[in-house]
Design a protein around this nucleic acid. Sequence first.
RNA 1: GCGGCUGUGGCGGAAUGGUAGACGCGGCGGAUUCAAAAUCCGCUCCUGGUGACAGGGUGGGGGUUCAAGUCCCUUCAGCCGUACCA
Length: 870
Amino acid sequence: MTHYDAPAIEKKWQRCWQDKECFTADQPDSSAPNHKPKYYVLEMFPYPSGRIHMGHVRNYTLGDVVARFRRAQGFNVLHPMGWDAFGLPAENAAMERGIHPGKWTVENIAAMRTQLQSMGLSYDWNRELATCTPDYYQHEQRMFLKFLDAGLAYRKESWVNWDPVENTVLANEQVVDGRGWRSGAPVERRLLSQWFLRITKYADHLLAAIDGLDRWPDRVRLMQHNWIGKSEGARISFHITDNPDQTDADTYAGRAIEVFTTRPDTLYGASFIAIAANHPLAREIATHDKGAADFAAECAQLGTSEAAVETADKKGYDTGLFVAHPVIDGATLPVHIANFVLMDYGTGAIFGCPAHDQRDLDFATAYGLPVLPVILPEDAPDTVDAGSFTITDTAYTGPGKLINSGEWDGLDVEAGKQAAFTTLASAGTGQAETTFRLRDWGVSRQRYWGCPIPIIHCDSCGAVPVPDDQLPVQLPEDVDFTQPGNPLANHPSWKHTNCPTCGKAAMREQDTFDTFFESSWYFLRYCDPKHKNGFSAEAAQYWMPVDQYIGGVEHAVLHLLYSRFFTRALSEVGYLDLAEPFAGLMTQGMVCHQTFQDKDGKWLFPTDVERDGDNWVTRSDNASVTAGRIEKMSKSKRNVVDPELIIGTYGADTARLFMLSDSPPERDMEWTESGVEGASRFLKKIWRLAADDTIAPPDAVMPDTADSAAQDLVKTVHKTILAITKDIEDFRFNRAVAQLHTLSNAISTLAPDIAGSAEARRFAIENLAMLIAPLTPHIAEEMWHMLGHDTMLANTDWPTADPAVAADDEVEIGVQVNGKLRATITLPRDCPNEDAEAKALASDAVSRYLEGKSPKRVIVVPNRIINVVA
RNA sequence: GCGGCUGUGGCGGAAUGGUAGACGCGGCGGAUUCAAAAUCCGCUCCUGGUGACAGGGUGGGGGUUCAAGUCCCUUCAGCCGUACCA
């Protein structure tokens, strides 16, 4: 008996699959109708960082199981792979190591492709794409120009993080505590003119269509729902008053500040107006008010990330201006500039009602503003009324009746809102309005390594699209990363061109697209990867939507929402006719590993340490090591395991099996050495089963005289087929693996010398090979081969089970007395409830607990449980 | 801050509202071996008991139900996202 030689087996079958083109997807052909139903499996394509990591191994193993399973079930499967090849890391490599981003990227792709191929993934490599090639990105230049024609793209000013030392725009992740990550200089907010895609046009559609995404995880649907953030409220105008104490007031008197609120019912409780630091009025005031200017500068240091803005201490600046209360005659409210008001949401201005909004209350407390309750809580004691109800340090946001609110008194919150709409509308100072949290998608990036935006700026003609015959606009190769700023803007000649309209000297747009642009349509390119227009409507119509999309939950909102929008936008401009790109979605958890630190707190690689009894020590010099928390694998904490090392040591099948074994796919998992060993041990075990020469030859038939134990094994096989089929359909791969363990235990414990054993074991091992094939395809093919087949499992149908054989005749069920388990009894399956009840009551344990009394009630759940209520 | 998720033996996890802990890891005991590795068999939630068995148990607190890991309320801890990382 030869031993299980994973590297040799894996290489052999990978070559076989390739030679026989097992995984080439059939393009639909109208002259030869394809009777197989299509199935599109897609994993989120990787950024080519240079080496695959365990997150990739997990992601692509999950996808490969689905692809192989569906192919075995008779689907025409499309399972492609490519490279999300534009992005910041390539530019960082260029700056740090002097290597060209393109060269770096191409080398990384080559290395990672080899690594992926060693995993035995069933990709149709003919469809491979890399987004950094003009062959790919030229299509998005045309898409963008069509969006522009259709009014789906436009230009406006927006804020960026500016590093004054590096002269570059920083990504949010490059801003650490308000400073540039490389320069350490405090960042400034700067306004730049940038391109936007009008995703908000589809806000309602994108929101409503979430209901139809029934094969998406609920949490992702909820996150998208909340991200779009539809809220219905009112827009209210507050007019600035004359104020004798304020010399500037005349400049502003009579002008309106537009406020959006979801709580117009609390208008009587308003005690101030707060506007964003970058609100037009605030910026105007800052031009002549040093205090306002200083405050704006302070706010600008927070950078542009929402988390930074929202977690900052609530601060404000009193402008000295007042506005008239729109409902209370003669009342005025002070106008503050506040750091917690966002210009991007609503109108960039709010009215503060401290009694019923915690943030407003914190602000009012800090700045000595009045707190007037206008909602009396539903559950307030009778002794509390409008006069005595007070708010101290907790705002009340629940339901109740309006108080201190003039003619609205006594209404509930909902009726109060309606009353407010009526009052405001008749006074002409406000109306009902719906706003969305979702903002238009800013696609301009001040970077080199991205798709050039095909626009020419002409002093006379403005922003002019690059004519079709001049597309694609290609990136220049000769760029310099040694000087600060955007290399595309620094390039001596690339940006200079002539205006396509008037012919005068003009400048190219020097920004490139956000890399989410590429990932918003790559799934369409795969449908027809050589097509001159990016893809054909026919191919897209056939393959789309993606039946099963798999990737990290970190993309739950942005990438998925942008892709949903992009598919709609492309349909609007005539590329195809489809709204939703992803019919099914599975979001995988992270791969984690224990962390290790030496006595100086330096992070250590798992390969640097070893166990010494209950402790950990360094391999090199036995120094003691602190074993820390189990965290997401990351380079910075060095708690990484290299997939190539694992595949080299144990084989791809072992790595794949361990990925699928213990944790459910959507949950975080911990990579452990012992887990890998366990997976490896299991594969060696099933290998020995297939290599056993006491099993029957192919085509052997179970003898009529077969022992009942042999028949039980056959039954177990049928049960296992049913269970694993369901488990794979439901993405419960860890359970499928457990079923495989149970089956292999049943095979190995069946005595070899009883009647029917040899035949039953052949039947079981053949099915074991077929069932494990999607998970560990190489060893499955080899076992199939060892069992005497000259076909390939890659071309073999999924096994089917006979439910009648799988069904048990008897069931063992629990008997409870008052909800506590007291006995178990065996009953014929589906026996009448009366029989079940009689047998339960007859059991010793039950009569002991009943103490001769008759039960009050007996609940019989057929084949499940019996509960006797005493 | 806001939005989302997760929490079950020593560990990863299993459990259509119906016998909590399948399966694996680790551990303990045994077989095999000159010995070891590998392999095979048995035991393994906690407490008490020789045992049959009894009691407790799904982050904490409360509730609904004949029955709650599962549903509801509340609270704590950790993780993900937060619009220029991908």
